[in-house]
């Protein structure tokens, strides 16, 4: 008996491309990393163009007030698309193995589909928190 003569761990791997599985899982974290870096820099520079913090935002940088929430809206939209992709992949492969994916985890393809779905949901929550902050928190206080 050859070492690989056992049931394949992902019998439905042909139903979900590796690229889409990766997109489902990684979009949320990548979007958050980019937005955190960019928006932190923009909102900080607006108040701290040099050594002393300004009472009111730096003149000429008012566009930041519009751009930052829009960036978060776009980020949420992208991550929602990733969640949708992950959900569809999971639907296509949800009978890949016995039992519930969340418990047994049998079926590598559906395992990654569920991971993408949960991760996207969690990162949408973080991005939504950040979006709300852009409306409620004073910029340079």
């Amino acid at each position: 008996m050859a070492p690989n003569a056992f049931p394949h761990p992902s019998p439905q791997r042909d139903r979900a491309s590796a690229l889409l599985l990766a997109l489902g899982f990684a979009t949320g974290p990548v979007v958050l990393a980019l937005l955190l870096t960019i928006t932190y820099a923009l909102t900080s520079y607006r108040c701290f163009p040099d050594g002393t913090r300004l009472e009111t935002p730096h003149a000429g940088w008012n566009w930041v007030s519009t751009a930052v929430p829009l960036m978060y809206v776009a980020g949420i939209a992208l991550t929602a698309i990733a969640a949708l992709i992950a959900w569809r992949l999971w639907q296509r492969t949800k009978d890949e193995g016995p039992g519930a994916t969340i418990e047994l985890g049998e079926g590598r393809t559906r395992f990654l589909g569920v991971w993408g779905l949960i991760t996207s949901a969690l990162f949408i929550a973080i991005l939504a928190f950040d979006l709300i902050n852009t409306f409620l928190v004073p910029t340079c206080a």
């Binding site: 958050l32 955190l36 928006t39 932190y40 909102t43 900080s44 607006r46 108040c47 701290f48 913090r53 973080i126 928190f129 950040d130 902050n133 852009t134 928190v137 004073p138 910029t139 340079c140 206080a141």
Partner: peptide, 11 residues
């Protein structure tokens, strides 16, 4: 600045 910190507060 508060807004900058609030992003990290959320995470």
């Amino acid at each position: 600045p508060n807004l900058s910190m609030s992003f990290f507060n959320a995470a």
